[in-house]
Amino acid sequence: MLRLTGSPTERAFSQEIIRMSGQDLLECLQCGKCTGSCPIASKTVTGPRRLIAKILAGMKEEALKDPTWWYCVSCGTCAGRCPVEINMYEVSTALCEMAEAQGVKPSEPHIHLFETLFLDSVKKGGRVRELKAVMAFNIRTMNPFKDMVPGMKLMLRGAVSPKDLMEKEKPDPAVARIFERAEERKGGHGK
Protein backbone atom coordinates (compact mmCIF):
# COMPACT_ATOMS: atom_id res chain seq x y z
CA MET A 1 0.00 0.00 0.00
CA LEU A 2 2.86 2.29 0.86
CA ARG A 3 4.01 2.27 -2.71
CA LEU A 4 0.90 4.14 -3.85
CA THR A 5 1.13 6.90 -1.30
CA GLY A 6 3.95 9.14 -0.13
CA SER A 7 5.11 12.54 -1.27
CA PRO A 8 6.02 13.10 -4.92
CA THR A 9 9.76 13.16 -4.09
CA GLU A 10 9.46 9.81 -2.34
CA ARG A 11 7.69 8.34 -5.32
CA ALA A 12 10.22 9.91 -7.67
CA PHE A 13 12.98 7.95 -5.96
CA SER A 14 11.41 4.54 -6.45
CA GLN A 15 10.45 5.41 -10.02
CA GLU A 16 14.02 6.43 -10.77
CA ILE A 17 15.49 3.20 -9.36
CA ILE A 18 12.96 1.19 -11.35
CA ARG A 19 13.92 3.09 -14.50
CA MET A 20 17.67 2.85 -13.98
CA SER A 21 17.69 -0.84 -13.06
CA GLY A 22 15.08 -1.95 -15.57
CA GLN A 23 13.55 -4.05 -12.79
CA ASP A 24 9.85 -3.70 -12.06
CA LEU A 25 10.00 -3.53 -8.30
CA LEU A 26 6.26 -2.74 -8.14
CA GLU A 27 5.72 -6.41 -8.93
CA CYS A 28 7.54 -7.45 -5.75
CA LEU A 29 5.39 -9.69 -3.55
CA GLN A 30 7.66 -9.35 -0.51
CA CYS A 31 7.72 -13.14 -0.36
CA GLY A 32 11.29 -13.15 0.95
CA LYS A 33 12.66 -15.91 -1.27
CA CYS A 34 15.44 -13.53 -2.27
CA THR A 35 16.65 -12.87 1.25
CA GLY A 36 16.25 -16.53 2.16
CA SER A 37 18.54 -17.41 -0.77
CA CYS A 38 20.97 -14.53 -0.43
CA PRO A 39 24.47 -15.69 0.52
CA ILE A 40 25.42 -12.36 2.08
CA ALA A 41 22.24 -11.74 4.10
CA SER A 42 22.93 -11.77 7.82
CA LYS A 43 21.86 -10.11 11.05
CA THR A 44 23.50 -6.87 9.99
CA VAL A 45 23.07 -7.11 6.23
CA THR A 46 19.34 -7.44 5.95
CA GLY A 47 19.05 -8.57 2.35
CA PRO A 48 17.08 -7.81 -0.80
CA ARG A 49 13.50 -8.09 0.48
CA ARG A 50 13.89 -5.29 2.98
CA LEU A 51 15.87 -3.23 0.50
CA ILE A 52 13.00 -3.41 -1.99
CA ALA A 53 10.57 -2.48 0.76
CA LYS A 54 12.64 0.60 1.55
CA ILE A 55 12.77 1.62 -2.10
CA LEU A 56 9.04 1.20 -2.57
CA ALA A 57 8.32 3.14 0.60
CA GLY A 58 10.42 6.01 -0.72
CA MET A 59 12.98 5.66 2.08
CA LYS A 60 15.73 7.04 -0.08
CA GLU A 61 18.34 7.76 2.56
CA GLU A 62 17.95 4.35 4.17
CA ALA A 63 18.09 2.60 0.80
CA LEU A 64 21.22 4.44 -0.31
CA LYS A 65 22.90 3.53 2.98
CA ASP A 66 21.78 -0.11 3.02
CA PRO A 67 24.84 -2.39 3.17
CA THR A 68 23.02 -5.08 1.16
CA TRP A 69 23.78 -3.63 -2.25
CA TRP A 70 27.40 -3.01 -1.28
CA TYR A 71 27.77 -6.66 -0.28
CA CYS A 72 25.90 -7.93 -3.36
CA VAL A 73 28.27 -10.16 -5.39
CA SER A 74 25.80 -10.49 -8.28
CA CYS A 75 25.57 -14.25 -7.78
CA GLY A 76 22.12 -14.15 -9.38
CA THR A 77 20.54 -16.62 -6.98
CA CYS A 78 17.67 -14.28 -6.05
CA ALA A 79 17.02 -13.50 -9.72
CA GLY A 80 16.49 -17.18 -10.46
CA ARG A 81 14.22 -17.82 -7.49
CA CYS A 82 12.14 -14.62 -7.61
CA PRO A 83 8.58 -15.44 -8.74
CA VAL A 84 8.43 -12.15 -10.67
CA GLU A 85 12.02 -12.34 -11.96
CA ILE A 86 13.49 -9.28 -10.30
CA ASN A 87 17.24 -9.17 -10.77
CA MET A 88 18.66 -7.53 -7.68
CA TYR A 89 22.18 -6.98 -8.91
CA GLU A 90 20.79 -4.57 -11.49
CA VAL A 91 19.15 -2.74 -8.59
CA SER A 92 22.49 -2.71 -6.74
CA THR A 93 24.10 -0.95 -9.70
CA ALA A 94 21.33 1.64 -9.84
CA LEU A 95 21.63 2.39 -6.11
CA CYS A 96 25.41 2.56 -6.32
CA GLU A 97 25.30 4.99 -9.23
CA MET A 98 22.75 7.18 -7.50
CA ALA A 99 24.62 7.14 -4.19
CA GLU A 100 27.80 8.18 -5.93
CA ALA A 101 26.14 10.92 -7.98
CA GLN A 102 24.60 12.38 -4.84
CA GLY A 103 27.72 12.14 -2.72
CA VAL A 104 26.37 9.63 -0.20
CA LYS A 105 29.20 8.33 1.96
CA PRO A 106 29.74 4.60 1.29
CA SER A 107 28.32 2.58 4.17
CA GLU A 108 30.86 -0.18 3.44
CA PRO A 109 34.15 1.65 2.98
CA HIS A 110 36.25 -1.52 2.59
CA ILE A 111 34.15 -2.89 -0.25
CA HIS A 112 34.15 0.55 -1.84
CA LEU A 113 37.94 0.82 -1.48
CA PHE A 114 38.55 -2.56 -3.06
CA GLU A 115 36.30 -1.78 -6.01
CA THR A 116 37.99 1.59 -6.52
CA LEU A 117 41.51 0.12 -6.43
CA PHE A 118 40.46 -2.62 -8.82
CA LEU A 119 39.11 -0.18 -11.37
CA ASP A 120 42.11 2.14 -10.96
CA SER A 121 44.31 -0.78 -11.93
CA VAL A 122 42.19 -1.50 -15.02
CA LYS A 123 42.23 2.15 -16.01
CA LYS A 124 46.00 2.24 -15.73
CA GLY A 125 46.91 -0.90 -17.66
CA GLY A 126 43.79 -2.15 -19.41
CA ARG A 127 43.85 -5.28 -17.28
CA VAL A 128 43.71 -5.64 -13.52
CA ARG A 129 46.94 -6.54 -11.78
CA GLU A 130 45.46 -8.71 -9.07
CA LEU A 131 48.51 -8.83 -6.81
CA LYS A 132 49.04 -5.10 -6.97
CA ALA A 133 45.39 -4.41 -6.20
CA VAL A 134 45.49 -6.84 -3.26
CA MET A 135 48.67 -5.32 -1.91
CA ALA A 136 47.32 -1.77 -2.26
CA PHE A 137 44.16 -2.81 -0.43
CA ASN A 138 46.03 -4.46 2.43
CA ILE A 139 48.26 -1.45 2.87
CA ARG A 140 45.40 1.05 2.73
CA THR A 141 43.45 -0.93 5.32
CA MET A 142 46.51 -1.02 7.62
CA ASN A 143 46.82 -4.76 7.32
CA PRO A 144 49.91 -5.17 5.13
CA PHE A 145 50.70 -8.72 6.22
CA LYS A 146 47.26 -10.14 5.54
CA ASP A 147 47.52 -13.40 3.57
CA MET A 148 51.29 -13.06 3.52
CA VAL A 149 51.93 -16.75 4.28
CA PRO A 150 49.69 -18.21 1.56
CA GLY A 151 50.92 -15.46 -0.77
CA MET A 152 54.55 -16.45 -0.29
CA LYS A 153 53.68 -20.11 -0.69
CA LEU A 154 51.95 -19.42 -3.99
CA MET A 155 54.92 -17.40 -5.17
CA LEU A 156 57.35 -20.20 -4.30
CA ARG A 157 55.21 -22.66 -6.22
CA GLY A 158 55.20 -20.44 -9.28
CA ALA A 159 51.46 -19.83 -9.06
CA VAL A 160 52.02 -16.07 -8.97
CA SER A 161 55.04 -14.16 -10.06
CA PRO A 162 56.85 -11.42 -8.13
CA LYS A 163 56.99 -9.67 -11.51
CA ASP A 164 53.26 -9.02 -11.13
CA LEU A 165 54.07 -6.79 -8.19
CA MET A 166 57.13 -5.00 -9.52
CA GLU A 167 56.44 -4.54 -13.20
CA LYS A 168 54.85 -1.30 -14.32
CA GLU A 169 51.58 -1.52 -16.22
CA LYS A 170 51.72 -1.07 -19.95
CA PRO A 171 49.08 1.54 -20.67
CA ASP A 172 46.16 0.60 -22.92
CA PRO A 173 45.05 3.89 -24.52
CA ALA A 174 41.78 2.41 -25.81
CA VAL A 175 40.74 1.41 -22.31
CA ALA A 176 41.87 4.70 -20.78
CA ARG A 177 39.67 6.50 -23.33
CA ILE A 178 36.68 4.32 -22.42
CA PHE A 179 37.12 5.30 -18.78
CA GLU A 180 37.39 8.98 -19.68
CA ARG A 181 34.33 8.98 -21.85
CA ALA A 182 32.25 6.99 -19.38
CA GLU A 183 33.28 9.53 -16.74
CA GLU A 184 32.26 12.48 -18.96
CA ARG A 185 28.85 10.95 -19.61
CA LYS A 186 28.28 10.41 -15.94
CA GLY A 187 29.06 14.08 -15.38
CA GLY A 188 26.48 14.99 -18.00
CA HIS A 189 23.68 12.69 -16.81
CA GLY A 190 24.07 12.70 -13.05
CA LYS A 191 22.18 15.29 -11.12
Binding site: L119, A182, K186
Partner: peptide, 25 residues
Protein backbone atom coordinates in the same frame (compact mmCIF):
# COMPACT_ATOMS: atom_id res chain seq x y z
CA UNK B 1 44.85 -9.39 -29.49
CA UNK B 2 44.93 -6.56 -26.93
CA UNK B 3 41.98 -7.84 -24.93
CA UNK B 4 41.16 -5.87 -21.80
CA UNK B 5 39.50 -6.47 -18.45
CA UNK B 6 35.71 -6.85 -18.55
CA UNK B 7 35.47 -4.64 -15.47
CA UNK B 8 34.44 -7.63 -13.39
CA UNK B 9 32.19 -7.08 -10.39
CA UNK B 10 33.58 -3.63 -9.47
CA UNK B 11 32.48 -2.12 -12.79
CA UNK B 12 29.23 -4.06 -12.80
CA UNK B 13 28.40 -2.70 -9.35
CA UNK B 14 29.43 0.89 -9.78
CA UNK B 15 28.89 1.94 -13.37
CA UNK B 16 26.58 0.28 -15.86
CA UNK B 17 27.90 2.20 -18.86
CA UNK B 18 31.55 1.55 -18.07
CA UNK B 19 30.89 -2.11 -17.40
CA UNK B 20 28.98 -2.62 -20.64
CA UNK B 21 31.54 -0.58 -22.58
CA UNK B 22 34.50 -2.65 -21.35
CA UNK B 23 32.71 -5.81 -22.45
CA UNK B 24 31.74 -4.22 -25.76
CA UNK B 25 35.35 -3.26 -26.37
Amino acid sequence: PKWSCCGSSPALKTDKLLSTALSAH
